[in-house]
Design a binder for these strands. Sequence first.
DNA 1: ACAAAAGTTTCCATATATAGAAACTTTGCA
DNA 2: TGCAAAGTTTCTATATATGGAAACTTTTGT
Lengths: 110, 110
Amino acid sequence: MDTPKEKMKMMTLDQMKDKHIGEVGTKERDKYEFDLKLEVLGEMIKSARKERQLTQEQLGELVGVQKSQISKLERNAKNVTIETILKVFRALKANIKFSVELKDEDFKVA
Amino acid sequence: MDTPKEKMKMMTLDQMKDKHIGEVGTKERDKYEFDLKLEVLGEMIKSARKERQLTQEQLGELVGVQKSQISKLERNAKNVTIETILKVFRALKANIKFSVELKDEDFKVA
DNA sequence: ACAAAAGTTTCCATATATAGAAACTTTGCA
DNA sequence: TGCAAAGTTTCTATATATGGAAACTTTTGT
């Protein structure tokens, strides 16, 4: 059904290790940047989890919660707290950055 | 990779603080990027508020909360939710972005 | 088609974030 | 100095995020 070479995202753990170990010097591999909105945060978690080849249950184990929590987070069921975000991405061994840019427009106080 | 103009600043907190000491009139497009941590978020709010030349009370009015809430947020009294972050930065007319970078390292599933 | 794995939803309890009000402390400045 | 403005803390109530457990639905492989 699927040819191994075509499905990079389905490679084995060993293949993944090889890939990553071989690129130790490389600074970044997969980087996503997006406007911070409630709706997209869950997508990011899911995306990163997939990249790590984990099921929700496995990620849950790493984070220390049930798979249902992961599902809820990925589906934006709640208004997540920073702590939760940090916990999840830490488990995924991800660096997360936040950038703030003050819009260059005249800003008046009422 | 040359950057034609420095549009993105990667600042430490100290640099950020220095920036605001003695330098009042400088607004216009300012962008800060930082590792997302609980401790730093409050500083960012404060920094952006100062940049906008607002008191906590004024920012509170814009956000729709009391000045004490702003103080709490700036002092990291709580584990903030995304919604709160969004509300505050929206009031400050700031664009906020979030980036996720999977660390390029051996990632093993137990 | 079927079974297993993966993901989702619901129900529920608990912890805690949000928030206002008011008292309190610190800062800046004349 | 002292006063006013700015910022902080405390007390309190309420809303809601976190999380587990289990039932449920969807996806996947054979």
